[in-house]
Nucleic acid binder design. Structure first.
Lengths: 233, 233
DNA sequence: TCTAATTTTTAGATTAGTCTAAAAATATTT
DNA sequence: AAATATTTTTAGACTAATCTAAAAATTAGA
């Protein structure tokens, strides 16, 4: 028998591997974005595996009652699957706060490390980390941190690309978390808490001219504006 | 192909799995304790696997040049194998300091969590943690923390069981790290930094009578005295 | 609605890490 | 030195997670 126990020193209601956790997280994120039953190809794209591997895995996850699965019809998370996924999100974001606030990592550096740390098995550890960090409500990218029960305010912010001329707001988060994107935002100065005034929208290429922090005029490409969240007000 | 890469988001000189790391650590620890080439059965006992599994694994580790292996003759670590093992020890002990100093875990609780955390792949993370924790030289059990190069002062302390009547010293560490043992030490009050004066040694069962912190007389069983380090002076 | 394109599943392999049972080598005892 | 005991290795099998190639089901288009 494969000795999975080595990686899981504690007792769980349902045994679950790191890979299974990652699949559940991927399904959760895709569903959050698209809002419907998640199909095989979307998962294989997110997980960087083949469709065949995904089919194998979703059968296993369905057997363990983490997802509802109907052949050729895609999958949805069960209550238990959603619990696992939000617990992972909680852990990931909590560790990101630790890495940035305490160890001085920048927002583009902390993601990959948090991908590893989120698999440490101990809810208690995360609760203690929570207290140690001063019960943060958001991670360094502006993403809300779920509480122990998995509840968290869904973002009410709008994408920069959805704002109209005259709207004013504050940069509060990103939709895309790639290192390349975050480093680009850093370089152009569009970082967390930056003030954004929409001056002009160019229909031709959907680019947006904004005033940044009441000082600099900046032309934002659609690729950027569609991945940056702004809180209007 | 099995997608090991999921757990190893960074690039390494030599790719190594968590299981392989654990075997190297076990070999390192056994060799540290026994001081000679490490045999199959000792490893299978430490890893809680069968001798057959160990044979499989040491072949793989020898192929990757982490160990020197001669059939039926046991194994020793290569320079690279030792580097991996001491890096693990460094990570383990650093995380233990974090868990105890920052998150309030007790010395018997932090070990199991550190067993998980030590596999997080990032030397830089540990260096930052080192600074954040104030460059600690010892972990909460009194074990020395290796530096980046893997160097650390071997313990000059003696085992309580090796002291003679009249010796005085301070409790500085343990040889055995089990939760049960640490909790027992807590209960009898023989904790880190406790003052120990050896009053009497009973040859019959090798038990030792000590004065604890200049106040309480305490009878220590051989099982305890052979696993507690004391710094004489 | 029939055909073509796309998506998903199945079939069959591979690797890491494990096992049990049996064989081989080494060590110990008489 | 032979017999016995112990240790180690080999042989063969299993599971999780992956793959490629082919088949089946669904969806889209003419």
């Amino acid at each position: 028998m494969h000795k999975t126990i080595l990686y899981y020193p504690f007792q769980f209601t349902t045994m679950i591997s790191q890979t299974e956790e990652n699949y559940l997280k991927a399904i959760y994120k895709i569903n959050e974005r698209e809002g419907k039953s998640v199909n095989t190809n979307a998962i294989s794209a997110a997980m960087n595996t083949t469709a065949a591997s995904v089919t194998d895995m979703i059968k296993r996850l369905a057997d363990k009652d983490f997802i509802n699965y109907e052949k050729y019809r895609g999958v949805t998370l069960t209550t238990e699957g959603e619990r696992v996924a939000t617990a992972l999100v909680r852990k990931h974001r909590m560790w990101e706060v630790f890495l940035c606030d305490k160890l001085g990592y920048s927002w583009d550096e902390c993601h990959d490390l948090a991908e590893q740390l989120e698999h440490i098995q101990s809810a208690d550890l995360i609760d203690r980390l929570d207290s140690f960090l001063g019960k943060p409500k958001f991670d360094p990218h502006g993403d809300p941190i779920p509480d122990r029960e998995g509840n968290y305010a869904k973002r009410q912010q709008v994408l920069l690309g959805e704002m109209t001329v005259g709207d004013k707001g504050v940069m509060v988060g990103v939709q895309e978390h790639s290192t390349a994107f975050l480093q680009h935002l850093d370089r152009i100065g569009l970082v967390l808490a930056a003030e954004v005034d929409v001056l002009e929208i160019f229909e031709f290429d959907k680019s947006v001219k904004i005033k940044l922090n009441k000082t600099t005029d900046l032309l934002i490409s659609s690729k950027v504006s569609e991945n940056v969240f702004v809180k209007i007000g």
